[in-house]
């Protein structure tokens, strides 16, 4: 595929173009903002530090396997994968379960929302109409399970515009991309992000297939699809989209980026996390399709 920037998620493109830490906009983006009648007023940011644990946070009552185990009830997606054999043994994983780690999701959502809220407050306090070029990151502060959420951007005022609303609009886009968005008839509303986290507690078949072993009792065809994990992958992406869709109202999501990570925990267990980010946009005028662009070859 030629021309990588066309396919990069907007947020990543912005992050790459960004210069030193304190400058919000690159020179071309700054020029483009002025062209659009946006006056940068300041660099705004919000932070939130959350306690971060990978495993269950208290009170979920997870059993450890074997006969009569408790299936976790987390209030979210949950699917049982009972082992098809009638075996009971300390080593045979007679039951398996995919379940949504709702506590992880709420912690992430809280961290992100708090950081975002603080950034928006800063912008509102300087009378900004909007925030462009938002960058959101999260990084561990230490090994002890502490995660810092950081959301930052450049607050802007619309020249000759009506007084700003209570809450400024926000977008990951900046510069020419934002200009084209507006020209196309979309108004930026806010950035949107949703997270889903699913834990795979493998049953015997999943364990065997993931480890490639083919024990006598496995009953799994060698080389077959690992149903339980595949289902988890499908669910985690669907849930992330659902979370974001729930935030959209009648608006659309533009320039989205979906990132899924998988942590293999051994013995077929895994933890999947999917984060979907994008720009919530609203139509403010009918779309005026442009004529077919002229194909050109550059002589450099």
């Amino acid at each position: 595929m030629s021309g990588a920037p066309a396919d990069l998620p907007e947020a990543a493109a912005r992050r790459f173009a960004e210069g030193a830490f304190t400058s919000g906009l690159t020179v071309p983006d700054f020029a483009a903002c002025l062209q659009m009648g946006l006056e940068p007023v300041g660099f705004v940011q919000g932070y939130c530090v959350m306690q971060w644990k990978w495993y269950g946070m208290g009170g979920m009552g997870l059993g450890m396997g074997g006969y009569g185990a408790q299936y976790a009830n987390t209030g979210g997606y949950s699917e049982n994968w009972a082992c098809p054999h009638g075996m009971v043994s300390a080593e045979h994983r007679a039951w398996g379960q995919n379940f949504e780690q709702t506590w992880v999701e709420s912690a992430w959502t809280e961290g992100f929302t708090s950081a975002y809220g603080r950034m928006v407050e800063e912008a509102a306090s300087v009378g900004a109409h909007g925030i462009v070029g938002v960058v959101d990151t999260n990084q561990p502060l230490s090994d002890m399970g502490v995660l810092e959420f950081r959301v930052q951007g450049t607050a802007v005022r619309v020249t000759d515009g009506t007084p700003p609303a209570d809450e400024p609009w926000t977008t990951y886009l900046a510069g020419q991309r934002l200009a084209k968005l507006v020209e196309a008839g979309y108004a930026p509303v806010s950035i949107a992000a949703g997270v889903a986290s699913v834990r795979v507690w493998a049953n015997c078949i999943t364990e065997n297939l993931t480890e490639g072993s083919n024990s006598m009792y496995s009953m799994a065809q060698p080389g077959s699809e690992i149903d339980q994990t595949v289902k988890a992958h499908s669910v985690v992406r669907r849930l992330a989209r659902q979370r974001v869709r729930d935030q959209l109202g009648h608006d659309s999501l533009h320039g989205a980026a979906m990132a899924t990570t998988e942590r293999e925990l051994g013995q077929g267990d895994a933890e999947l996390q999917c984060i979907l980010r994008g720009n919530r946009v609203r139509r403010f005028k009918d779309f005026d399709p442009m004529p077919a662009p002229v194909p050109t070859v550059r002589l450099l």
Partner: peptide, 15 residues
């Protein structure tokens, strides 16, 4: 909005 509201999700760039 004034135009018909089709709620879309897309990872395409504006270009």
């Amino acid at each position: 909005g004034p135009a018909k509201a089709t709620r879309m999700l897309s990872d395409l760039s504006i270009d």
